[in-house]
Design a protein around this nucleic acid. Structure first.
Lengths: 331, 331
DNA sequence: CTGAAAGCGCTTACAG
DNA sequence: CTGAAAGCGCTTACAG
């Protein structure tokens, strides 16, 4: 009934608390009988260690914190599940902290409840980052490019992903293209667009400003934008490239509704590879970003930084284009 | 740099640590100048309280733990986001712990790092529940029916939801029905089926065992099951009721592929109301379970149990049927 | 209004 | 092989 402490066990077992601590932590200096006896008592009393006491004294908590502003988003669940799995491999626990303002995050990160942390949260500002750096808590950022002794980044090479799609379209001799933007100040959205645009420019393919729509990574927004675009009566693009799958789907909805056929009349490409791509009719061609690898690499890197084996660095993960029906042009 | 403690502030500010503590915690007994000065020093030194020290001494951590086995699932992200929001309202933080075996969870729950917890994890066994009860940590279960002084449950009235769908079909005079089961040992899946079946029985509508398929809450499984079912050549059901939306979608995929029209040839109903329902063609009629309310009620209840204002009880949340195209029969 | 002291539960040198 | 003691960073009566 409530709070059994190491002291209770010591009393009950007739030994000192240091001995109990040693037994509990498997420090191999005890007479086997003593050890057994203590463990038996601890079990009988339903002892659960108070982590606050433990963490206060010892350096390591064997916990990694994942700090995010939201759990939504197309791949967060998968990413987090992968991280949990990876943490387990290294003997860590993953604690997820959702916060709504920079300060709360910083307090948790630096409140010594975790040995290191992974941050996926655009709203930690410069000052917060500076604090993390000062405190030398090993940290991996998933959404910005940062690097120091104890800080790494594991991000998508979204510029490259944009290029990949451009090349895919160029190879097919497609020239009139419509781009559906993501959230305007989002790093990946910006880089994807930049890589795409610059690669097209290299091939002397113009991207008419009228053919750049706003999708904000949302199905609805993209749907409306494409619908409005189609009503303008401009020449139909030979291809639509949307900054993520959700907006690609909104785009296809609008196209199909207007009576166009995909991929016969125009082709569509997204980014992310959410489950939905396989379920839609037609199945959506997309760039599968490296998010599965992201979880694996982030935890591995973090663990190495915690142990001091490695210093911080930057990893950029390439995506992979997955061709499906929405671009299956039979020539 | 690194670990600034209350002691450092005391030295720097020329006061005692108790005074620092009081200043930091806003205990209103200090001379304003002293207070100001201390806060200024704390800020300058980038002081961050060590939560382990604090929690060790004081009873409350002002944190609520959400314990889950996985972050996947159709509505988890929304549920968790709602909880974060509710926690904030009451001045709590939400920490999410993902674990892969009962023990780890119990240790965290009872390791005094949270004031109370919400559990959504079928794999805590009897012993674990017993321990929670013994320790008197206020707890709300989201996936089982349990109740004591400090334990509440906030669950879906899945039996009722099943009845609701049955009644919907009965009203439309539909008699030949196919049911697609969820995960077989899942509480909600079982109750949904039971409510549905028993309500049909009351109306003397038989449910042929050959018309009960296994969908396991998955699109793919349901798709295969329905496909195999259709190939048997039995009379086409007038309606399909799937234990969740994902399997309803798999069902529709199979039906459309086989050349049937929905809702003309047969109607389809799901459960959950995932985003997808709106995006599919035809849009899917479904029962929106009470999961948004679940988050709100769970946190509210938990906070009241923590404060001692209320004792544990059981809340059952009714779903609501949302009619869409997949059942739009024009008679 | 401020400070000295005890203590939260644990770990960790160190002595015996 | 076991125990006494110090101390991790904080809060909280209590004294002054």
């Amino acid at each position: 009934m409530g709070k059994v402490t190491i002291k209770d066990i010591a009393r009950e077992a007739g030994v000192s608390i240091s001995t109990v601590s040693n037994a509990l932590n498997g420090v191999n200096v005890l007479k086997p009988e003593t050890r057994e006896h203590i463990l038996e008592v601890a079990d009988r009393l339903h002892y659960i260690p108070n982590l606050n006491g433990r963490n206060l004294k010892s350096k390591a908590t064997k916990a990694i914190g994942l700090f995010v502003t939201s759990l939504k988003g197309p791949y967060f669940a998968t990413l987090a599940d992968i991280m949990v799995w990876e943490c387990m491999k290294y003997g860590y626990e993953l604690n997820i902290f959702v916060f709504w303002e920079g300060k709360s995050a910083i307090t948790n990160i630096l409140g010594k409840r975790v040995d290191g942390c992974v941050v996926l949260a655009a709203d930690i500002d410069e000052k917060g980052v500076q604090q993390i750096q000062d405190f030398e808590v090993p940290t991996v950022f998933l959404d910005r490019e940062l690097k120091s002794d104890k800080i790494s980044s594991v991000i998508f090479d979204s510029y490259k992903d944009g290029e990949t799609v451009a090349e895919f379209l160029i190879e097919r001799n497609i020239k009139r293209i419509c781009f559906i933007q993501g959230i305007l100040n989002n790093y990946d959205a910006i880089e994807r667009f930049r890589g795409f645009r610059e690669r097209l420019a290299k091939a002397d393919i113009p991207l008419d400003p009228e053919y750049v729509l706003e999708g904000a990574f949302e199905r609805e927004k993209a749907y409306n934008a494409v619908k409005a675009f189609l009503e303008k009566g401009l020449p139909l693009p030979e291809a639509f490239f949307a900054a993520n799958d959700l907006s690609a789907i909104g785009c296809m909805d609008a196209l199909l509704e207007a009576g166009y056929q995909i991929p016969k009349d125009t082709v569509v490409v997204g980014v992310d590879d959410i489950d939905f791509c396989e379920w839609y009719n037609p199945k959506l061609t997309t760039v599968k970003t490296g998010y599965e690898k992201q979880g694996v690499v982030a935890i591995k890197k973090l663990v190495k930084m915690i142990s001091g084996e490695e210093k911080g660095d930057i990893t950029k993960l390439h995506g992979r284009l997955i061709e499906r029906q929405s671009t299956a042009i039979t020539e």
